[in-house]
């Protein structure tokens, strides 16, 4: 598993696309938080909070994480190296976990530099240090869980096709549906009696809950179970090669 993790990380770090995705994430975040008048601008709100970052980050993740995961299995399938990989003395789940952890580490690497914003707001606060650090750390945890779900969805979509573009579009759509799709369904008048239950099925509801800085075991179970479900789906998708012929 760790060999695959190292291989994935090194292949990501040696390619330009890896750096581009991280730079784009940081640049868009920085521009919306500190630069342009976006509605989440720290200077405009005049509040010592990082709520803006945790509001826009999931939307950037919707494109960033599929871009990271799109090549994980699709490229191997296209190059024909998937057969070699699957015949190695490693289990399918080790391969998937290696790739999943690599994607999660890349997400972590792109989120870590935003800690600088926390230091900036801490320094800018009046009085200095007037910042809810615990709450922000809880929100970071929520962002990491969200990244975990998106990464598992992305890896699953990558295992379905040998085209990276198809994998990217499919995973972006699936992440979007899982994130806010249920909220839209809950707004349908016909389903108004079950609106709360339906919206609880979506990621956004749990992410907003954990972003308040209160770690609820229900949210943690939800995030972990959805991630595990998509990892299971990836495993079945890989093993479905035995169905054909």
């Amino acid at each position: 598993m760790f060999t695959i993790l190292k291989k994935e990380l090194s292949s990501f770090m040696t390619s330009l696309i890896g750096y581009i995705t991280i730079i784009v994430f940081l640049l868009v975040n920085a521009l919306l938080l500190w630069g342009i008048n976006s509605g989440v601008n720290v200077f405009d709100s005049a509040l010592a909070t990082l709520n803006g970052l945790f509001f826009i980050s999931p939307w950037i993740f919707l494109f960033l994480i599929p871009a990271i995961t799109m090549k994980m299995f699709a490229e191997e399938k296209k190059n024909g190296t998937i057969e070699i990989l699957l015949t190695k003395p490693v289990s399918d789940i080790s391969i998937i976990m290696g790739k999943f952890l690599a994607a999660l580490i890349i997400v972590l690497l792109s989120v870590l530099p935003t800690m600088v914003y926390m230091i900036c707001i801490y320094e800018l606060g009046s009085p200095k240090g007037n910042l809810d650090v615990g709450g922000i750390l809880g929100s970071y945890l929520g962002l990491l869980f969200l990244g975990g779900i998106f990464a598992s969805v992305g890896i699953f979509c990558s295992s379905l096709t040998n085209s990276q573009i198809v994998a990217f579009i499919l995973s972006a759509l699936m992440c979007l549906t899982a994130y806010i799709g249920f909220d839209f369904i809950a707004q349908i008048p016909f389903l108004s009696n079950f609106d709360l239950t339906i919206s609880k099925l979506g990621i956004a509801n749990h992410y907003e809950s954990i972003s308040r800085g209160v770690i609820d075991s229900r949210d943690v179970i939800y995030f972990l179970s959805i991630t595990a479900f998509f990892i299971l789906l990836t495993k079945i998708s890989l093993e479905s090669r035995n169905w054909k012929k």
Partner: peptide
Amino acid sequence: IFVKFDLTQE
């Protein structure tokens, strides 16, 4: 069955 950890200062 659930537990909550409040990390906020308030």
